[in-house]
Structure formats: structure tokens, C-alpha cells
């Protein structure tokens, strides 16, 4: 286990060194972060110019949700997406062979190889937005709410990772998978708003097909103290389910890649 942590550390150190060469990316990420934030704040301002709540969410609660959306996006764009895109490239070019001949769990290796450090800016922006929203809302969340928030956020992270891994694993059978990632990205955009505002079919899709609900809405609900014990348990179960499913699917994928079934 300690060896594995050291291994992940080595990968991250190298990735940071690599990214440091591209300082311009920092400004790009910063600009895009602020532009996105401008859109989010602007649309909130326009909407709350006409109403005092949206499906039961106040303006500041929704702002906190926007912040959480940013934290999750930052996590995806820093850790998950770069690694998975690298995996797809490796499958195309056949360089995954190098990974599979390494004496280490291949899933671990493909999951930690790339790390787009500048995108951590989104996480920082998101945290700032959440803190600002909570401060403006007045009463601070209780310790229980904060704990529930952190736990659901971590579980959301696990779910999103597992989901991306499953998508990328499809590449073992169907090489042209990039388009499916595009679907995820456009559907993930819907997570800027609480899934409760969507029609039932879309809400179901955003919960189980593209787990935006677990990634953003549930942690936000937990933070504002609007999540039940049952929902918490459900999130835990979902995280476990997604993780195990992703692991099994990955192993099947690797077996298919090696032609074990043939």
C-alpha cells in the first residue's frame, strides 16, 4: 500500500513538472474559469430577478450548488478526464501494451497517469464560491451538515470516476468512443442546476445514466441540510455499486483486449 501511494506520488510529481512547462495553460484555465463563473452568476442574477426560489432552492443555496459543480468539474478535469483520454489514446495506438506489461494493477496505473494541474483552479474557484454563498446566506451549516457534505462529495467523486472508467473501457471493444465522452460532457452541463427542476425522465437519466445528481445535487443538498438519511445511504450504495461495476467491467475489458474470450 505504501509503495502504491509512493507510485501515485511519483506520477503526480512528474505530471506537475510537465504541466509547469505550459504556463500559458494556467491563464487559459483561469480565463475560462472566470467566464464560466460569469455565466453562472449572470444567469442566477437574471432568474432571481424574477423569483425568490427555484424548486425550493434560494439564490444563495443555488450559488453554493454552482460552487460544488465547479469543485466537481475541477476534479474531473484535473484527475479523471486526462487519464481516461490518455487511456483511449493508448488503446488506439497500442501503447497500452506497455502498461499491461508492468507489474502493477493496470487500473491503478491508467487512472493516475495524467494530471492536468492547472484545472485545480476550478476547484479553488468552486470552494471560494461555496464559502461566499454560505457567508451571504447567514446561518452557518452545522457540523453534521458539513460532514454529510464532505462524505457525499467524496462518494460523488468515486461515482464520477467509476462512470468515466466504464465509458473509457468501452474502447476495448469499440475503438471510436470519443463521441460518447462528448455526450457525457454535454449532459454533465445539466448538473449546474439541481436535478429536481428537470422532467422525471431526464432526472432519472441524470441520476443513473450520467450520475450528475450524485456528483453535484446530493452534496449540495447535504450542505444546505436537505438530505435524508435514506438518500445518504443510497449514495453510499450507489458509490459502491458504481465502483464494483467499473472494476468488473474493466477486468472484462482487459480480458477482451487480450483475446481471452476468443
Amino acid at each position: 500500500m505504501r509503495d502504491r501511494i509512493a507510485l501515485v506520488g511519483t506520477y503526480m510529481r512528474l505530471a506537475v513538472l510537465n504541466e509547469l512547462q505550459y504556463r500559458a495553460n494556467f491563464w487559459g484555465s483561469l480565463l475560462e474559469g472566470f467566464l464560466g463563473l460569469a455565466v453562472a452568476l449572470g444567469s442566477l442574477a437574471v432568474i432571481f430577478g424574477h423569483t425568490d426560489n427555484l424548486a425550493g432552492w434560494s439564490a444563495m443555496e443555488l450559488l453554493a450548488l454552482v460552487g460544488i459543480y465547479y469543485i466537481m468539474s475541477g476534479y474531473i478535469q484535473t484527475f479523471v478526464q486526462p487519464s481516461m483520454e490518455r487511456l483511449l489514446r493508448d488503446v488506439h495506438k497500442g501503447t497500452l501494451d506497455f502498461t499491461l506489461t508492468k507489474p502493477e494493477d493496470a487500473q491503478l496505473l491508467v487512472s493516475v497517469r495524467a494530471f492536468a494541474v492547472w484545472n485545480l483552479i476550478y476547484v479553488l474557484l468552486g470552494i471560494a464560491v461555496v464559502v461566499f454563498a454560505l457567508a451571504r446566506a447567514g446561518d452557518a451549516p452545522s457540523t453534521g451538515q458539513i460532514v454529510a457534505f464532505v462524505v457525499t462529495l467524496l462518494l460523488g467523486g468515486v461515482i464520477v470516476y467509476s462512470f468515466w472508467l466504464m465509458l473509457a473501457t468501452i474502447a476495448f471493444w469499440y475503438i471510436k468512443i470519443e463521441n460518447i465522452l462528448v455526450i457525457f460532457q454535454s449532459m454533465y452541463e445539466a448538473g449546474r442546476w439541481p436535478v429536481g427542476i428537470y422532467p422525471p425522465v431526464l432526472r432519472l437519466m441524470l441520476t443513473f445514466l450520467v450520475p450528475v445528481a450524485f456528483a453535484v445535487t446530493v452534496p449540495a443538498s447535504a450542505l444546505v441540510g436537505r438530505v435524508s438519511g435514506a438518500a445518504l445511504a443510497g449514495t453510499l450504495l450507489a458509490a459502491l455499486g458504481f465502483f464494483v461495476a467499473a472494476r468488473l467491467f474493466w477486468r472484462r475489458g482487459v480480458r477482451a483486449y487480450a483475446g481471452a474470450s476468443a
Binding site: I47, A55, I180, S186, W193, I197, L202
Partner: peptide
């Protein structure tokens, strides 16, 4: 696949404004 993205964005705004109208 591209269609999903093109339809989703107006759909999201529609859902948001419908929720606001309902409120």
C-alpha cells in the same frame, strides 16, 4: 450524439425557467 448536446442546452434553460414560473 451531437444532437443530444444541441437539444440539451435549451432544454436545461427551459426547465430552469419553468421551475421559476412554477415558483
Amino acid at each position: 450524439i451531437w444532437l443530444i448536446g444541441a437539444v440539451l442546452e435549451p432544454l436545461v434553460f427551459l426547465a430552469v425557467w419553468s421551475a421559476a414560473a412554477a415558483a
